[in-house]
């Protein structure tokens, strides 16, 4: 079932008051696909992925996740959030809980897992992001890179079908970027469906099936990484790539 469609956005429009954040966005994501979203700040890329798990409401258009149409009902939102994991720029770990408790809370509360079940699964995922020995620590005792890997493990504990990454390395010190990207690459190699908002073009080259460029709330251009980086079509894409690649 390589062709199964997991996310389908059609004609999505979103406003913040009078400001239009998303303009007529269409996006289809198939199972196992890795997509990198890039674009200047304020282009709507974060808003786009935040609409997929309904952290933001849309005003027009439709979003279907794993066959479930997202509307305003709590039930629909619930079903969709069960299938979608998210990793934030600022980690957003729960500071008053240990690493292990961060990972077990949602499975226990939202999936009705038993404590021992949830802990066994959490330890497995913490091993997978190579942080198993820190399970009893509190987030503040970990480095930024470690915290972000915990955040990835925490999302994986809910066994999502899709993972959304919202600039996961932007808040990290440079020496910690690699450990988080390596974790994400590992996840990609295991076949996880991923949508990543990131400026890490090396990562895009290495794992993305498609790179999508956004500006002013619209998808301007998309393509396979090779073609996208070698011969961008639009002037805005060229300008953006020129600016961002000049620093690398």
């Amino acid at each position: 079932m390589q062709d199964q469609i997991l996310i389908e956005m059609k004609g999505v429009q979103k406003w913040y008051g009078g400001y239009q954040a998303l303009r007529d966005v269409d996006l289809t994501v198939r199972k196992g696909e890795k997509i990198v979203l890039c674009g200047p700040s304020g282009s709507g890329k974060s808003t786009l992925i935040r609409c997929i798990n309904r952290l933001e409401a849309i005003q027009q258009g439709s979003i279907v996740v794993n066959g479930h149409r997202l509307d305003d009902s709590i039930k629909a939102i619930d079903v969709v959030r069960q299938d979608v994991g998210m990793v934030f720029q600022s980690f957003n770990l729960f500071p008053h809980m240990t690493v292990l408790q961060n990972c077990t809370l949602a499975p226990i509360r939202a999936r009705r897992a038993s404590k021992s079940e949830a802990e066994a699964a959490a330890r497995k995922y913490l091993e997978r992001v190579r942080i198993g020995d820190q399970a009893e620590k509190y987030p503040a005792q970990l480095s930024g890179g470690q915290q972000q890997r915990v955040a990835i493990a925490r999302a994986l504990c809910m066994q999502p079908k899709v993972m959304l990454f919202d600039e996961p390395t932007s808040a990290l010190d440079p020496e910690m970027v690699k450990e988080v990207l390596d974790t994400m690459i590992g996840l990609a190699n295991d076949g996880m469906t991923m949508i990543c908002v990131t400026h890490e073009m090396g990562f895009a080259r290495q794992v993305a099936d498609r790179v999508i460029f956004m500006a002013d709330g619209q998808i301007i251009e998309e393509g396979a990484p090779d073609a996208f980086f070698r011969s961008p079509q639009h002037a805005r894409t060229k300008q953006f790539l020129g600016e961002i690649l000049a620093h690398h």
Binding site: L55, R81, F88, L105, R109, M158
Partner: peptide, 25 residues
């Protein structure tokens, strides 16, 4: 705000978000 958003993204309902995440802090 990120605390509530992370909890929502994990599929936690209002009662759990308040009891487990927001109120303790």
């Amino acid at each position: 705000r990120g605390q509530t958003e992370a909890a929502m993204a994990l599929g936690l309902h209002y009662s759990s978000r308040m009891r487990d995440i927001v109120l303790p802090q």
